Amino acid sequence: MRALFPLLLLAACGASPAPQFFGAERHEVRLSGIDFVVFRKGDRAEVVRLGYLGRAARDAVPALMEEAVRVTTGCRALPGSKVTGLPGDTGEARFDIDCDG
């Protein structure tokens, strides 16, 4: 049983996509010292922020998430398309994306 605990901790360290993003392209990027994983599937992207941030450091994250989509996929996040699991969540967000221009 003791050996199981470290394995659970290791499994919790990696970013996993939401079920609708299983099979998506995975990209990793660091912006302003913050690590993000971007999953792209078709015209949608999911961004997961890695690591802990204090409350004051979270203010820049929503804009950095949009930049992470652009940098990793070459597509732009459509304005107003961001959806988070919880209001104000800076750990994960999903976007509709436009890759045509």
Rank of each mutant, 00 (worst) to 15 (best):
M1C: 00
F5S: 03
P6M: 12
L9C: 10
L9G: 05
A11G: 05
A12R: 10
C13S: 02
C13I: 03
G14I: 08
A15S: 12
A15E: 05
A18R: 01
P19S: 08
F22H: 07
G23M: 07
G23E: 12
G23Q: 13
R26F: 07
R26I: 07
H27P: 09
V29I: 15
G33D: 10
G33E: 06
I34G: 07
F36T: 05
V37L: 03
V37T: 15
V37Y: 02
D43E: 15
R44N: 13
R44S: 15
A45S: 13
A45Q: 05
V47G: 02
L53P: 04
G54E: 08
A56Q: 11
A56K: 13
A56E: 14
R58D: 04
D59M: 13
A60E: 15
A60K: 14
V61W: 01
M65R: 05
A68I: 02
R70H: 11
R70K: 13
V71P: 03
C75N: 01
C75L: 05
C75G: 03
R76F: 07
A77K: 01
S81E: 07
S81N: 05
K82C: 09
V83S: 02
T84P: 02
T84M: 00
T84C: 01
G85D: 13
G85F: 07
L86M: 14
D89W: 07
D89T: 03
T90I: 12
G91S: 14
E92N: 12
E92W: 06
A93E: 03
R94F: 02
D100L: 14
